Structures are given as C-alpha cells and as structure tokens.
Amino acid sequence: MSLLHPARTEPAPAPAWTVGDLVVRRVDEVELPAQTGPWLLPGATPEVVAAAPWLQPDFADADRVLRLASHTFAVAAGGLRILVDTGIGNGKDRANPAWHRLDTDYLDRLERAGFPPGSVDLVVLTHLHTDHVGWNTRRDGDAWVPTFPRARYLTSRAEWDHWAGTELEEPRRQMFRDSVHPVAEHGLLDLLDVPADGLEIAPGVALVPMPGHTPGQVAVRLTSGGATALITGDCIHHPVQLAEPGIDSHVDIDPALAGATRRKLLAELADTDTLLLGSHFPPPTAGLVRRDGAAYRLLAVPGTTGRPADGGTAP
C-alpha cells in the first residue's frame, strides 16, 4: 500500500447541506497527504496553528499540520444536477506523486450520492488547475472522453484566455491534453463572461469572480428561500486563512490580488448566515464566518448524512 495512495475503505454517506430549496452534497475523492499543507501554505506554521486552537482537531492534526482534502460539491437545484469541480481524476500522469495515477472509487461515491455521470447537467470549473478538472474525463481505450457526456462544462472566459496565452510547462500541458481539451473537442465546454456582481447559471446558482489564485477563478454562490452559501474554489484553501488572512498559497498567480480578494470576501461574510463551503476544507467542510479579534474563525456546520427533503437521487 502506498502512503500517498491509501487503501480504499467503505465510504461514509455523502454529507449534505440544505440552502433553501437547494441541496449540496460533498462527494469525497481523497484526503491529501500531510506534506500538502506545508507546501501549499508555507505561512501556516505550527506556531500559527497553535495560536488558533479552534483549528484542532478537525482542520489540523496533533502535530499542528494542516488537513486538506479533494472533493466535489454536488448541487441539486431546480431539477438540475450540478457538479462544482471534479478533483484529480483516476489513472492520469501527474508530476505530483500524490496525484499520479490515482485509483479511487469516486464515480461510485458520486452515484451513491444520487449523481450518476449520465444524470449531470452542468459541471462548474472554478478554475483550470489540475486538482479541479481531473474527473472531467475518463479513459476509454486509448482516449480520454468526457465523464459527464450530457453535461455542459462551464468556466470563465478570463480563465481560459489566461492559460491559452501562457507558455505552459509540460505537466500542465499534459493536464490540458487529458482533462480539458477533450471536453472542448466534444463541444461541451462553455466560456462565460462573469461580471463583478455574478452570473446566474441555474435557478439560485451564480458564479462570482474571485481573482488572484488564478486570473479567472470564480466561486459559486447559492441562494434560495432567504438562505445563502458560497463554495470557495481556491480563494480560500484552508480555514487557517480565516485566522491569518495574510497567508498566501504557494501557487497563487497573483498573491497580492488573491489576498485582497480573500480579505474582502471574509469581511462580507463575517457574522452573517452565509454558509461557507471549502473546496479543500476537510470534514466538517462547512461553517459560518465569525469575527475573532482582528481576524476570523469558522463556526463549523457539519452536513447531515440522512436524505434531505428532495432525496438527492437521480431521476
């Protein structure tokens, strides 16, 4: 058994949150290895973690090392089935050894959550990084084909244009070859112009610009029945960035802009009832932003594992 690729275990039910008439489920792919945190967020030292004791035990381990995860949010909205980001993917050649040729039961988990691939209507790609696009495609013989054959795949035009105009290193070219270009070649990719106040893509589901980590990154805002939630993408990688909003990600393209985006978002969410759903937050994954001195903390809101009112099952 690889320490980077843990053995499969019987999955727990996909936790769910209700946002008015919308239902959001977290569909797990993998827990990321312990070395991810120090690499991704080098400013999140054990001393920083110790200064925010609310981070333990859920968001950091006993050694004050950050916990991070890869998962998809599956949203049932107005009869539509929507996936937000598709993780790392199986069987793909990746420079990161923890992501190289994964073999997980992600598709089984997705189906158990009520989202079999053939039922998915929309796939939102918050940005075009390797760990957010991998299950866009699956292997079919010698080819990579769309995993969700009847879905429209959505990303911002600003994101596409950035990477189209950038000289890519080979690992990123490989990612585009196996996980992005096949979707475009099958005519399933839509590039969206996302205004500053957001773009509704389905009833109660809107994309909101969150630039900095990448130029065209978006978050996903859910609104229904007076309730709101926000799926982060990578504008916030980990709850430690609430305790210390100045902590930047090692892979932010524009750290100054990413930091400004993060601070503005946290100030807007602080002490409101908007549920924050972290795209890399480990369980319990979701919570409410609360002011904590000069910074913030996350008041955890665990998901339920029973069936919400609409069942979340495929038609």
Rank of each mutant, 00 (worst) to 15 (best):
S2V: 05
G20H: 14
G20Q: 12
P33D: 02
T36R: 13
T36V: 14
W39M: 11
L40C: 02
P42W: 01
W54R: 12
P57V: 06
F59L: 06
A60R: 07
R64V: 10
A69Y: 04
A74Q: 06
A74V: 10
V75A: 00
G78V: 04
G79N: 01
L80R: 15
T86V: 13
T86G: 05
G89M: 06
A98Y: 12
W99R: 05
W99G: 00
D105F: 11
D105L: 07
L107G: 10
R112P: 01
F115H: 06
V124C: 05
L125A: 13
G134L: 04
W135S: 14
R139A: 15
D140T: 03
D140M: 03
F148W: 12
A151Q: 12
Y153F: 14
Y153S: 08
A158Y: 01
W163D: 08
L168S: 02
R177H: 09
E185W: 01
L189S: 07
L189D: 08
L192C: 03
D193G: 14
V194G: 12
P195S: 11
G198A: 09
P215A: 14
T223I: 06
G225N: 11
A227C: 04
A227M: 04
P239Y: 12
Q241E: 15
E244L: 06
S249M: 01
H250P: 02
G259M: 07
G259E: 11
R263W: 01
K264V: 07
L265R: 01
L265G: 05
A270E: 02
D271I: 03
T272N: 02
T274Q: 01
L275F: 02
F281H: 11
P283R: 10
R290C: 03
D292F: 09
L299G: 07
T304R: 15
D310A: 02
